[in-house]
Computed example of a mutant assay.
Amino acid sequence: MDYEILRALNAWAASNSGVSWTFFLFTREVLKNLLPIVLFWGLWFSFDAETRQTAREKLVGVLLIGAIAIGVARGLATVLPFRTRPMHDPDAGISIMGWLNTSLLEEWSAFPSDHAVLFFALAVGLFQVSKRAGVVALLHAGLIVCLPRVAVGLHWPSDIAVGILIGIALSVLLFRPVQALVHKSGLVPFFEAREAIGYPLLFLATYELSRMFHSVRQVMQFVWE
């Protein structure tokens, strides 16, 4: 089933320059990574005074769940058997897009998809804050983040499917306890009373999340080595 779905999507993209170009745009960071962060900041300022603190506590919880999701995804990819990406597997029998860097992610296992884990965890978390924003985030996660990654050969369909299940499960299981922890810590009112410190730190957290904590991982890799 993996091969059939992969080859069908890849053939569709390879035979249609418009689809290939669209997927190229979808794999760029601006379209792929930023929408959940835009939704986060939109929701941060969209609630009235009566419900604002609770909503903001939930949103901080979503950020924490996102960080946990990345950690879980990368941890699983490290401890599970290495899986070659379709674009590096000659048996996959797919066309490689001319714009795709084939040396990309050669040393990174494909299973599970950390993109699927993160963006579905964020989408389900945002859905629990605002159903409208959550639906937009879910569509973004499925159509803009995950679909192109299969079609161009970055992931097998099963990498994405398992990643989606992990992301949804993490968000559903952790949302209430993480929100309760944020509420108990008094983090939101503490930083609201110190906006000059709170907002720069919150912006930094959302920026790193939008880059899947790439800078943090580089620092950790440097320290580890």
Score class of each variant (00 low, 15 high):
residue 143 L to E: 02
residue 222 F to H: 13
residue 5 I to A: 11
residue 202 L to T: 02
residue 126 L to E: 05
residue 35 L to S: 07
residue 68 I to C: 10
residue 16 N to M: 05
residue 41 W to R: 06
residue 164 I to L: 15
residue 40 F to N: 05
residue 29 E to Y: 10
residue 123 A to M: 06
residue 82 F to Y: 13
residue 18 G to W: 15
residue 123 A to P: 05
residue 110 A to E: 10
residue 31 L to M: 13
residue 22 T to Y: 00
residue 56 R to Q: 15
residue 138 L to V: 11
residue 191 F to I: 07
residue 26 F to K: 03
residue 159 D to C: 06
residue 176 R to I: 06
residue 54 T to G: 09
residue 113 S to Q: 08
residue 119 F to G: 00
residue 225 E to M: 12
residue 38 V to R: 05
residue 89 D to N: 15
residue 177 P to N: 12
residue 112 P to M: 11
residue 36 P to D: 06
residue 35 L to I: 12
residue 103 S to R: 09
residue 6 L to E: 04
residue 90 P to D: 05
residue 82 F to N: 10
residue 125 G to S: 01
residue 23 F to G: 00
residue 66 G to L: 06
residue 33 N to A: 12
residue 113 S to V: 04
residue 44 W to T: 02
residue 94 I to N: 04
residue 63 L to M: 14
residue 73 A to Q: 09
residue 63 L to G: 11
residue 38 V to H: 03
residue 36 P to E: 06
residue 48 D to M: 06
residue 77 A to E: 11
residue 17 S to C: 00
residue 14 A to T: 07
residue 160 I to R: 02
residue 47 F to T: 03
residue 167 G to Y: 09
residue 130 S to D: 11
residue 15 S to Y: 03
residue 57 E to W: 04
residue 206 T to Q: 06
residue 149 R to Q: 15
residue 171 S to M: 12
residue 94 I to Y: 10
residue 143 L to N: 04
residue 101 N to R: 13
residue 126 L to R: 07
residue 216 V to Q: 05
residue 91 D to Y: 10
residue 116 A to E: 01
residue 8 A to C: 01
residue 186 G to A: 07
residue 124 V to R: 00
residue 221 Q to N: 12
residue 225 E to A: 10
residue 92 A to F: 10
residue 12 W to R: 09
residue 174 L to A: 11
residue 53 Q to N: 06
residue 210 S to M: 08
residue 12 W to K: 07
residue 83 R to H: 14
residue 84 T to W: 05
residue 67 A to L: 12
residue 32 K to V: 00
residue 36 P to Q: 10
residue 218 Q to P: 00
residue 5 I to F: 11
residue 15 S to H: 12
residue 100 L to A: 08
residue 190 F to V: 03
residue 116 A to N: 02
residue 171 S to D: 09
residue 98 G to L: 03
residue 101 N to P: 00
residue 101 N to C: 02
residue 191 F to P: 03
residue 77 A to T: 12
residue 188 V to F: 14
residue 128 Q to N: 14
residue 59 L to S: 03
residue 95 S to P: 03
residue 112 P to I: 07
residue 146 C to R: 02
residue 42 G to R: 08
residue 76 L to T: 08
